[in-house]
Amino acid sequence: MTPARKKRLALITLMLAGVTVGVGLALKSLDQNIMFFFTPSEVLSGKAPQDRLFRIGGMVVDGSVNRPGDGLTVKFDLTDNEQRVTVSFAGILPDLFREGQGIIANGKLGSNGEFVAEEVLAKHDENYMPQELADMGIGEEKY
């Protein structure tokens, strides 16, 4: 490589390194804003905003889904395997909503500690398999 080319290559490397560090620092400082949702533990330890909408994400606890009263409102518990938060929601649930499913709800914390959701989204996992295999319980231990 000629000296001129070496110099240009070094300049580009330097430029790229500079941009990487810059973007890295910017993302680091924005970390909390990029987080799409809070876990139940984070919500209970007061990390989530109190006065505005935020998202909570977790697994729907088995057997916790119930429809009290008019049948329009659904209540269920979300857990991150440490803490749980009760969510209430009146609206149409996504197709993937079921017990044990990862869910993200957008809403506010009510005064009684219940999370009142305005929107419920399902988060699916990265495993794909036919029904027969899932029935055999292979999904449990990742293969």
């Binding site: 799409f36 649930l93 996504p94 993937l96 929107e119 419920v120 989204l121 399902a122 699916h124």
Partner: peptide, 10 residues
Amino acid sequence: PMWGTYWVWD
């Protein structure tokens, strides 16, 4: 159909 939304800002 799966998440319940066309778009989110994640």
